[in-house]
Design a protein around this nucleic acid. Structure first.
Lengths: 191, 191
DNA sequence: TGGCAACCGGGGCGAGCGTTCCGTATAGTA
DNA sequence: TACTATACGGAACGCTCGCCCCGGTTGCCA
């Protein structure tokens, strides 16, 4: 296919500008922003965007994969934390906050307008594995109910991000507290 | 404005067919289904749809308001149930199930593509009041944590509907159990 | 510095969708 | 049955958006 000859300097510059702008715009407005708008804000023609990313979905992919990598990295950092509860709940909170900040990422995780699992099964799997690791440790320590799977936890994260999008990020404390408390195992019924 | 002279028989028939089809289609596919598609399935021209509903949003409105009325009715029925916990949690479950069945309603409640609060403030208020009534009784009985407002509960319902849409309705039991358990007040710490 | 390949910009095309218009058909009435 | 207000169908319009193309420009190397 494409012998990847090094890019010319201006091409490289433009490619990076497009990526940087798309980062911000997708985070702020979601994945439905027109390509022309991204091109305009990057000070570039639409054709230039399509030369670097053959399709709008390819642009999604470049950005979302980077974001997911970041999430996985964060999960791995937290896996090194001593307290299993702090590690698991820290990641959970990080995820919901991220969803409030980055609209495009939240949409991608929820499968709206872009399907990670099809586009990059590897990234999706790494993400699920990272959740599974934190979850297993938390369950072994008895700080998360034992009947939950990693898929359940991801579903809950998606739901929490939807709540963030629905209501502002502010004054969402009690709502997220409900979910966090629900994750804890039933305390033994009073004797 | 329009002196509402009675409709001609065929007009009345068509209007009802359009409404019936739109009900099903919006529930199954969501609010983004094209008007032409609805007209086609109703065996009617697009112009006919627009004569009865001046705008696509007006068609949303007719349907969503009817659905919301149904929800409010259900809430009022449950308000008559003796057990406050059964009443509140029964409504919560009803809502999440409804969101799984009726995609269009879920989108409307979440404010995606149609804004109930602007289109029909009355219906929105009746809905919130219905929640508030069930919530207050449940809180007074000590079966729901006291720091939650009706808006918080609605936010949680929207989030649970998003979870339903994300994962299938099947195998969502543990996930919804997390939220339901989180709604309960903290049991007193062991003495 | 000259020449060529690589790259750029932005106008244009086609598809999808909400909405409108108008010639035709039909229900209701005398 | 004949007449008219009313309603119908679906072609057409305008707009948005993803994507392509071509005439002009510019980085790179000899």
């Amino acid at each position: 296919m494409s012998g990847d000859r090094p890019l010319r300097a201006d091409a490289r510059r433009n490619r990076e500008r497009v990526l940087a702008v798309a980062y911000e715009v997708f985070a702020a407005e979601g994945l439905s922003v027109p390509v022309d708008e991204i091109a305009r804000r990057a000070g570039v023609g639409a054709g230039t965007v399509y030369r670097h990313f053959p399709t709008k979905e390819a642009l999604y992919e470049a950005i979302v994969l980077d974001r997911v990598d970041r999430l996985v990295g964060r999960a791995r950092d937290l896996a090194a934390v001593a307290d299993p509860a702090e590690a698991f709940y820290g990641f959970f909170t990080f995820m919901t906050d991220e969803g409030a900040t980055d609209k495009g990422l939240a949409e991608a995780l929820a499968g709206a307008g872009f399907d990670i699992e099809t586009a990059a099964p590897g990234a999706e799997r790494a993400f699920m594995d990272a959740i599974a690791t934190l979850l297993a440790r938390a369950q072994a320590a008895g700080v998360v109910r034992a009947d939950l799977t990693a898929a359940d936890v991801k579903t809950l994260m998606v739901g929490c991000q939807a709540m963030q999008r629905y209501r502002g990020a502010a004054a969402l404390g009690p709502v997220l507290a409900v979910v966090r408390d629900g994750l804890r195992p039933d305390r033994p019924a009073e004797p």
